[in-house]
Amino acid sequence: MRSLGLYVPGDSFLHRAPAGAKLLVLLVFGVATVFLNQWPGVTVALVVVLGLYAWARIGWRMLFAQIRPLWALLLFVAVFHTWVSGPVRAYEVLGALIALVLAAALVTLTSPVSAMVDAVVAAARPLRRLGADPERIGLMLTLGIRCVPLMAVLVREVSEAQWARGAQRSVRAFAVPLIVRALRQADALGESLVARGVDD
């Protein structure tokens, strides 16, 4: 599982803390940011989150990678709020947003995928009375993780076949065979799930 995922290996306190506890703290923080709408509070939140990144020894580059996909939208929001209600308001809205995005990312950056799966399964346990099946949720997550490389291989094979036939510019000539092969793969996987006793 180490080859997948965004986990940044390390041995800081945050790395060693149980994934479930980190998720719980994140949840509390997420609720808190709803009430975090004054600039001093926002600044404290940002400083705390940046401090946590430093504590976990996660570098600036990794930190910026968490926000970079949002820059166009953040810019738009910044311009909008500055124009409508001034730069302080813009800072408050964006600061709270960025603090929460970074805090949430930090949980995944410091927790291996397998630990997150276990935390989700454990968190689902109290929901059993409501009809949830924690083991099945865990099974679905691991099956999903398994299907990512499986589909990546199919994509490569189908695009090679498309290349060989000289039709590499057609979306349809790519997607239809890809999905049909994915469906066949699902049939085979379903059969082996039965053979390995998943319907127990």
Binding site: L4, G5, L6, Y7, L23, L26, G30, Q66, P69, L70, L73, L74, V77, L97, L100, V101, L102, A103, A104, A105, V107, T108, L109, S111, V113, M116, V117, V120, M140, L141, G144, I145, V148
Partner: peptide, 27 residues
Amino acid sequence: LFLGLVAIGLPLLAGGRGTIGVFAGPS
């Protein structure tokens, strides 16, 4: 399931994005 995989840290959103952070974001 797909969003669950993103949440637990697989970089599966277009452009290699992932983490629970996206659920705190504007999208």
